[in-house]
Amino acid sequence: MAETTERKQYLTDELRSQILALAPRYPTKQALTLPALHLVQHTYRYVAPEAIVEIAELLELAPAQVLDTMTFYGSFFRTPDAPLGEYRVWVCRSLPCCMCGGEELLDRLCTRLGIRPGETTADGKATVEAAECLGACELAPCVWVNGEVCKVDSEQALEALIERLR
């Protein structure tokens, strides 16, 4: 039986056109899955179940296909009660950084912000996560903040980082 209840559109028209503007780059619509998820997360700071359904509709896929892809990757946030903070902070824990104090740095940063790794501060400012090699080993121990990478190997550097996240 066809249901006629109107569902409110979740993705904005602008977001839809941003996603579809990339379509000529690929011979299949499914290839737009990661670009679409990135755009949605960038806009809403997490990927809502409604977004998954609407991305699937837009790309002529089953929602399960989009969900399957999304949950394979480490970059996406899914829960509305814990969206990504304004700043996403990755502290590298792979060997070069780990052996130069990366894990202690993660502990100290989290303690100072009053959160555990993977959590977001109460004011929604910063989400801090442990990361695997960020490809900036010459800056060990390194921290990634919204795409910028810096070396945090001293008290002053840690203070400067915390100041930035307030």
Binding site: S94, L95, P96, E132, C133, G135, A136, C137, E138
Partner: peptide, 11 residues
Amino acid sequence: DESEPGTFNNR
């Protein structure tokens, strides 16, 4: 997709 721990030359 340079991700091998210790590697950053492509970057």
